[in-house]
Amino acid sequence: MAESQAADLNAPVVGMDYHMHVQYHEVLCPVMREFADALMDKRLIGHKCPQCGLIYSPPKGYCPICVVPTDKSHELELQQRGTVTNYTIVTPVQYHGQEETDRFAKASLQLDGGGTLSLQDLLEIPVDDVRIGLRVEAVWASDAERNVDEVTNRSWGIGESAIRGWQPTGEPDVPADELPTNVF
């Protein structure tokens, strides 16, 4: 509801704050539970569609293009190294619950050996140095800190509580024309 400034008690009321609170609790579906369990073991898994061969990570339990189910038998472990294929540098908008204050980067990655990830955090690199072709590797949260509390059925990313992000490997950049043009 509209906010009002309560400074002048004689001013007409044009609105009032009404903060609603609705809590949801959804159980993790089986494929996301397997994905979360793998993260706890520092493994990154996906499902490979038996028809078109596309790899989905996190797995969906089906391929939305071929509309065929996928299960444990289609699971494969992805490599934890890859290349930035595109990125966004976000200036955080301050809405209720926003904790970010500084500009941050989110990147799409093509993983070595197949598989793609979108909206990944980049670490150990100034945001202005982020570029297409940058080689990166996963940075895991320590055994003590690692958890999958942020993994939900709708996770796009991976959750900083398991993989903190991706840091530059120091390898030379991959030339842009050697990268697929349409990775998320």
Partner: peptide, 9 residues
């Protein structure tokens, strides 16, 4: 236990 698209499909 399944997601909406999973039981819809």
């Amino acid at each position: 236990e399944l997601t909406e698209p999973q039981f819809l499909y």
